[in-house]
Nucleic acid binder design. Structure first.
Lengths: 113, 113
DNA sequence: CCGTATCCATATTGATACTG
DNA sequence: CAGTATCAATATGGATACGG
């Protein structure tokens, strides 16, 4: 595997590239929360324990920039904003599920859960 | 999902726990390099472009501490040390493979490779 | 051959407060 | 409701040099 450039950053392999899209503490929890349909900011936040406004905000922007989610605004009173998975993100769900299974198995091995 | 403690750190979900085992820039490349059998330090290093001694060393120790690899020393001249995947790590290989596939697909979408 | 130590730059995350 | 800004703490990774 030869390294490559994308958006001003060097990647050494496909895994790094994938993790740039779904990695970090919060991206996968956010994607999972949106898997059953669009959610607005406040409702999304409720589904993700411990996340701060700052992290939710910055991670939503990053996901949007990578075309993993769309941000749809509705001009109403009060204004409504909904976040929704793109196809690109839906393709990540099986990977996330498998990662969750592996994590759950590891937890059982050390007696958690 | 309720948060839990392990090795003095808080985890909020199984994904975080899984990523503590295979996450970061180098752990997955190392595990992949060891998938076809044990390798000694110098040979392992050759298979992973760009990795420094420091990162190889620290990541190997972390993987050992989490029982993802074993470190086997042979008293010879010159001394030989081999690193080998454990069963626990072998269970991660399908996950890593799927992540690689996803990353490769993402790369094709943006015209890399 | 196989590490190990030290120092430092950068990235990531958190705490807190404030706004249209 | 849905952000946005600022500052600080911590984690991660890299450069370099040295040691049994």
């Amino acid at each position: 595997m030869k390294e490559f450039l994308h958006d001003n950053r060097v990647y050494y392999n496909p895994i790094e590239f994938a993790m740039a899209h779904i990695g970090g503490t919060w991206k996968m929890p956010i994607l999972i929360s949106l898997r059953n349909g669009a959610l607005r900011y406040a409702d999304l936040k409720k589904t993700i324990p411990h996340i701060s406004d700052k992290m939710l905000f910055t991670q939503l922007r990053e996901l949007e920039n990578k075309n993993m989610i769309t941000r749809n605004t509705f001009v109403e009173k009060p204004p409504r904003v909904e976040y929704q998975l793109t196809e690109k993100a839906e393709k990540a769900l099986p990977v996330i599920d498998q990662l969750t299974e592996y994590g759950t198995a590891l937890m059982e091995e050390v007696g958690i859960g």
